[in-house]
């Protein structure tokens, strides 16, 4: 598959008063054209910072991308200046944020906010842009768009607002859509609708999606490939069937075990298994593998040396147990 986005050795650090936090500490993965890649991991594993780094909107100070390359269609986004980067944002790569309640500006009508994108990137006049906004609202399935376009965010429900966010993100038909936990703030029925909408729009516009989530169910439903992150590093990367059928990293296995199963008889009456402990403090990472402090299967070398990525066919994993 042709690579649309390739991240090579990316390091984004936050420079705080009490030390340097390596929020992303050497990340490599790629997303193919029209492919959906899931990025999963606990809170604080660096998923959102990855998204912000790709968009070039890491809050600076204190954050800064210090090393690596972000190749988009072959050219390095980190080498772009502010103006070049601005042209990419929204037009080539768009982003949907987690919370639709706070991501829209409450002072302007949603029509004006969608029209903004058309005026910025399409060079359209205001009336044309409003026409475009109505069209986009129709695409994302908001009923009565001619009326809704003049409404303010507070007049819409959460699901509606997330649809508006999607409409804004898609209005310039980007090649890559970064969705940062797009359904976390929504209730379950709306989640399903939103995901179905994203899937259908993906086919329609032939775009790639980087789906950040901690819901493995969504990953199984939507993605072709999965990247598992932990404390700023990629732990495992595989095609979705391969990952669910044969999770190689103890961390991935832990994540899968911590899912409640309603259909599996043997697990119905068991306690839910949690991974003990929390993500280590990034200011003070353990020696060796960064998961070793919580890993039930760790061996001698785990606490000594950081494992490299071991490849098995198209399944890559960062764990000493997979060395042979």
């Amino acid at each position: 598959m042709e690579k649309l986005l390739e991240i090579v050795g990316l390091k984004t650090h936050f420079f705080l008063d009490n030390g340097v936090v390596p929020a992303i500490d050497g990340l490599d993965f790629w997303i193919g054209r029209g492919e959906t890649v899931g990025v999963v991991g606990e809170s604080g594993s660096g998923k959102s910072v990855t998204a912000l780094s790709i968009m070039g909107v890491v809050p600076n100070p204190p954050g800064k991308t210090v090393e690596g390359e972000i190749l988009f269609e072959g050219s390095d986004l980190l080498a772009y200046d502010a103006e070049q980067m601005r042209r990419i944002r929204g037009k080539e790569i768009a982003m949907i944020l987690q919370d639709p309640m706070t991501s829209l500006n409450p002072v302007f009508t949603i029509g004006n906010q969608i029209a903004e994108v058309f005026m910025l990137h399409g060079g359209k006049s205001h009336p044309e842009a409003i026409e475009g906004a109505i069209e986009m609202l129709q695409v994302v399935g908001i009923p009565n768009p001619e009326k809704r376009v003049h409404e303010y965010p507070h007049q819409l429900s959460g699901g509606m607002r997330q649809r508006v966010m999607i409409a804004m993100a898609l209005s310039c038909t980007p090649k890559l859509l970064i969705a940062d936990e797009p359904t976390t703030a929504l209730d379950v029925t709306i989640q399903a609708q939103t995901l179905a909408l994203m899937a259908s729009l993906k086919d329609r516009y032939k775009m790639a999606i980087m789906l950040i989530t901690h819901n493995l169910g969504i990953v199984a439903e939507m993605c072709q490939r999965v990247v598992v992150m932990y404390a700023g590093k990629m732990m495992e990367e595989a095609e979705v069937e391969s990952l669910f059928a044969n999770p190689m990293h103890p961390y991935t296995r832990g994540l899968l075990r911590s899912l409640p199963g309603v259909d599996r008889k043997e697990r119905r009456h068991q306690r839910l298994v949690a991974i003990p402990g929390i993500v280590p403090n990034l200011l003070n990472l353990p020696k060796g593998c960064r998961f070793s402090t919580r890993c039930e299967e760790h061996i001698g070398i785990c606490k000594e040396e950081e494992p490299p990525l071991f490849a098995r066919d198209r399944h890559r994993v960062r764990c000493w147990l997979m060395k042979d």
């Binding site: 909107v57 809050p59 601005r86 706070t102 500006n105 409450p106 994108v117 993100a169």
Partner: peptide, 27 residues
């Protein structure tokens, strides 16, 4: 400037002065 709607506007490629005048100063 750290609020979500400002980040969202940035992620959509809005110009800096535009963000300041439209998305920040009204607040």
């Amino acid at each position: 400037k750290g609020r979500d709607h400002v980040v969202a506007a940035k992620a959509l490629g809005a110009k800096d002065m535009y963000i300041i005048v439209r998305h920040i100063l009204p607040y």
